[in-house]
Design a protein around this nucleic acid. Structure first.
Lengths: 130, 130, 130, 130
DNA sequence: GTGGTCTAGACCACC
DNA sequence: GTGGTCTAGACCACG
């Protein structure tokens, strides 16, 4: 799994990690059961403090995407339990709302939003295929 | 111009204002030459500290989007740089990407994403009508 | 709000804080809208590191019990939103399951569990009244 | 003796074993003189490392609940100290307290807590019957 | 080896 | 003043 992090970014480092790992799972680049690097290793690789990576892992665990086992490591979850799935759906609706809001702010009509979405999908697919 | 602000949001209040004004210009809802409310009035309307609005206006002026004329008020600049619209569009694409990631995590196929989007649109329309 | 913390306890310090604050809200000793002490102040009062208190506040916010506003402080939430309420109900059911499990392990029949519950309730009420 | 163990649990695996054995003694499901499975067998049954079970047995022996006889096996001690049952009961009371706190946070009145408990009981019974 | 917790300090941004 | 983030180190417990 390749991650890169930018200290000067608007987004805090730990959230950049959260998002990239979530994207990696969503894109199928890492699969259920896969083990993530230890937060110490990843920290060394990214040249940041271990606690920063741990904070990211903690958030991913709270979201039900990964699972940590003391003394063994952290792994991508098999399948999120029902309550987590419900929250996840709510986040989906929230993301839909935000997209619509932003479209309205840009003066982009609904039909074009779907086109923007399709374009984004193509790029994601390319990324996954490579 | 209708603005709304959320104190609990991840984005600082003053940046929420910056974005909404910038998007309003990009979307054509306010046009070059239009006058913005005084930062005191806007602060009163949003029930926040005047300094916060001032900070937002300052940033908008630094970005070249608006112009303050001492004793007269603040106005939308003529020929706002093309970058404004571009940045607004980029935020739209980013929102689309996030929606797709979240959909993948939920196991929701692309066709259904469009349906979720339509449902969200209906609710928004209802809300707007009332 | 009176909190006490025990470094030698089985439960991590930050979880002790989470529980005591949650109990305080549940017991009505602090009410919606009330401001909590800043995490720095509380840390000084308890003679622990500020980050430890912050971790507790973060968890309470995630659970939807409190709300933080940058630059202003942290407050007890008015009413948890729907999704949070759902999770909260699930935690309730989980707590019920644990109680039954423990009762089975102790060899305590169901009728006596209700009595244990009533005794616990009386003590809680006393605590709240004082 | 039926034990089950959860790697993802907050409580370390070896302490889960300690508790379940202690509670089994307190609940009378295993009696003084009864022989426990060897730590290797139990480890195989629970699909965990033998060392983990050994650690649990060591702690149980330190607490005076069980006794290892070299070359013969490990047995429940005669006249286990009264504290065992007391601790088990204390865990029961603690579980009751948590249930009440969670109920208060959900705004669920005491009468309904009993109903939630009954519902949980039914489900457990169904599960046990199957 | 792994994760879990805690410390003491720093710097920043927000209000 | 407030919260938000990050660091560099420590110690412990677990498997």
């Amino acid at each position: 799994m390749l991650l890169h992090v930018n200290a000067g970014d608007e987004l805090p480092i730990y959230r950049q990690i959260v998002r990239q790992v979530a994207d990696s799972i969503a894109g199928g680049r890492i699969k259920p059961g896969d083990q993530l690097p230890s937060h110490r290793d990843l920290a060394a690789q990214l040249v940041i403090a271990p606690l920063t990576v741990k904070k990211a892992y903690d958030e991913l665990e709270r979201e039900g995407l990964i699972e940590t086992q003391r003394g063994r490591g952290t792994f991508v979850r098999e399948r999120p339990p029902a309550t987590v799935a419900a929250e996840s759906r709510e986040r989906l609706r929230e993301a839909a709302r935000r997209l619509l809001t932003q479209a309205a702010l840009c003066g982009v009509p609904f039909e074009d939003v779907v086109r923007v979405l399709e374009e984004a999908k193509e790029k994601t697919t390319e990324r996954t295929d490579s």
